[in-house]
């Protein structure tokens, strides 16, 4: 217990680091995933191909390799950014591929007749998209988006090994100070549980509020 109370600021810093990483990378992943999903359902062949390549490559890339390439590779091109920004970039791009697939399958669950009906009523493309297709797609993608973001929060642990301040990385300084390793890890585990379970609770709430009644 005193591992936690004596090092509250260290744990707090690590916890906040993980939360920050999760939030920023989630925003990047959602934005990029939305763009890529719109490419993948676009009527233009080149854009579809771009989206497909992006998703296929990133989904099959080990995240450690991506971190390795981004954190250690981009500085070779003269692009020097803080490590945290690199980590957000790597995590966000990686997760965007999964978000893209979730959004695309969400859009594909909307029956074709819905769009056809909307167009027959004379709705423009924007109206069809914003008023008919996306609201229905949104309802069905809530749970898979939630589990993707939980996976992101868990994956952020890798950033600690690439000199970013986050929760898992705190174990190193604590074990150097001679604290019990087991208790150190117990509190780290509790920190991660808090983060993943609160994301889960948030998405369960959203699902209850807006989800499809099944």
């Amino acid at each position: 217990m005193d591992v936690l109370t004596n090092n509250l600021s260290l744990y707090g810093k690590g916890f906040l680091g993980t939360v920050e990483l999760t939030v920023y990378a989630s925003l990047l992943a959602l934005a990029l995933g939305f763009v890529m999903a719109s490419f993948r359902v676009a009527p233009v062949r080149a854009l579809r191909a771009l989206g497909t390549v992006w998703v296929t490559v990133l989904r099959n890339t080990p995240l450690t390799l991506l971190f390795f390439a981004v954190v250690l590779g981009l500085p070779r091109f003269g692009l020097v950014l803080p490590f945290q920004l690199f980590a957000i970039l790597a995590l966000g791009c990686y997760t965007s591929a999964f978000i893209c697939e979730v959004l695309r399958s969400g859009i594909n669950t909307v029956p074709k007749g819905q769009g056809e009906a909307a167009r027959s009523l004379g709705m423009t493309f924007g109206q069809t998209l914003g008023g008919v297709v996306l609201p229905q797609a949104f309802r069905s993608v809530i749970p898979p988006i939630g589990s993707t973001l939980i996976a992101l929060a868990k994956n952020s642990a890798i950033a600690g090994a690439f000199s970013v301040t986050e929760l898992l990385g705190t174990y190193k300084s604590l074990s150097e100070m001679g604290y019990s390793i087991i208790w150190t890890f117990v509190w780290i585990a509790v920190g991660y549980l808090i983060i993943t379970l609160s994301i889960s609770a948030l998405f369960h709430f959203m699902e209850k509020r807006w989800g499809v009644a099944r």
């Binding site: 642990a157 890798i158 074990s175 390793i181 890890f185 991660y192 993943t196």
Partner: peptide, 15 residues
């Protein structure tokens, strides 16, 4: 499922 894999790997490796 709620725990990052890396935390488990590090725990087993270090502790």
């Amino acid at each position: 499922r709620a725990m990052p894999v890396l935390v488990m790997i590090f725990f087993i490796f270090v502790a």
